[in-house]
Design a protein around this nucleic acid. Structure first.
Lengths: 239, 239
DNA sequence: CGGCCGTTTGAGTCACCTCAACCACGGTGG
DNA sequence: CCACCGTGGTTGAGGTGACTCAAACGGCCG
């Protein structure tokens, strides 16, 4: 019973991949699924063990990182609730996944999931579309890493996080009302995501505050006073 | 007859997406497909017209670019023969495609292609795996753009191009023999791909030559004298 | 209270950028 | 055949945004 109910009461059931499944297939997946929890900072999957499972993020934020032998590190993606974590059809994951905040996952065996993909065209379709979107998002971040100034990068990150953490807030141009967000990343992690140093991030946040675009509250709290200006500073691409 | 033969004699038939198709389905696609040619520098698809077709690269190199309103530009991907060009399931492409060299494409209507995807699980599977690989490749490039020095970037680009243009050369560690490649990009384009200025690219190529790692011949010719050292300089990631 | 950690702030440096001149090559036309 | 010019690439000199190193700050916890 608790198992059968798990999916029905799931917080992300309307947004995660599993929304593509029929009730009976959902029940099937449900029998195979299990929850996992991680504390902020814990490694979820690294280079060593070939991960045998995939997952949907239920709560919290997961960061995907790649690193160089000498310790330089780049965060190549952030996963929010309803996002998919894992690399089907490959035994070795090309990145490490780490809990940025406390995280809850809904996990399923990778082999089983691949089997389900094979027999459920709609599931595969949804995964394909999400993967295509992931490519687009990566390309957008490449534009940021290759071209943008420190100020633009920080602004862009705040816009990204605001959109993911408060998805119901009015999108694009009309986003007028001040918005309060809690950063899921430390300064060092922000720097790793933006290709900057943490000192630079700190200074740019200062400047944004001085310009009355944001207001910092405590370590990780941010009030976006002027969302429109922030989006302008972030520099939306032409295409 | 010429149509029917087109696929059978295709230079990329064993590597492109269409290798997933059965002979009869290949014939079906073949009836819908048509060739297109572009000269180096020509725009293939931009932001304006929602592209109504997808394609396989037959010969040449295509660059995918994103740009900012003020003219800053980033190359977010290079496509080589057998690669897939297009954005299924979206009417507006998030990037512009331009011929870096003279290019020949094998094009098919986007709607038809999507229909074929729906009825051919193996085709969809192959596209999914390629898209997953594209995400991995983008992540790798994000590591480059976020962390690496100018010298490492230039070395990494040469390694990438060498692997794509001379795929038969021994991969990884053992790549000993000198290798001659022709750059498909101008200095300015290389800079746009690496997040550098063209002057910096020029200087770094000089240094690589001074270190006897490469030898430049004419404008776009490069002989890689020491492939192993070049790969070391490029800095392979831990994961 | 004292030590620790994440963050901020400051001062000095450097890798890469900017601006500008120069060069080599190829095509054009007198 | 050679002067001319346009394009793409190289080289040099100087500037600067972000980095590096270092110190101080301020919560939090034992």
């Amino acid at each position: 019973m608790p198992r059968a109910k798990a999916c029905l009461g799931c917080a992300v059931k309307d947004k995660a991949l599993c929304k593509a499944l029929s009730p009976e297939d959902l029940a099937k997946l449900n029998r195979l699924a299990y929850r996992k929890r991680y504390r902020a900072g814990q490694m979820i999957s690294g280079l060593s063990a070939p991960e045998a499972w995939c997952a949907t993020i239920l709560t919290g934020v997961v960061k995907l990182t790649k690193s160089l032998p000498d310790g330089r590190q780049q965060i190549v993606g952030l996963l929010f609730p309803s996002d998919f974590l894992g690399r089907p059809f490959k035994t070795t994951s090309p990145y490490a996944a780490e809990a940025a905040t406390d995280v809850a996952l809904c996990c399923y065996n990778r082999g089983h999931f691949e089997g389900l993909l094979a027999e459920q065209p709609e599931l595969k379709q949804l995964l394909l579309e999400r993967t295509l979107d992931a490519v687009d998002a990566s390309h957008e971040w490449m534009l940021l890493l290759g071209c943008k100034s420190a100020k633009e990068r920080v602004a862009a990150l705040l816009v990204l996080i605001a959109h993911r953490l408060a998805p119901d807030a009015p999108r694009a141009g009309a986003a007028q009302p001040p918005l309060r967000i809690e950063l899921p990343l430390s300064r060092a992690e922000i720097a790793d995501y933006l290709g900057l140093r943490l000192e630079t991030v700190s200074r740019q946040l200062n400047r944004l505050q001085a310009a009355a675009v944001i207001k910092r509250v405590a370590r990780r709290g941010i009030t976006i006073c002027n969302p429109r200006e922030l989006e302008r500073l972030a520099g939306e691409p032409l295409q």
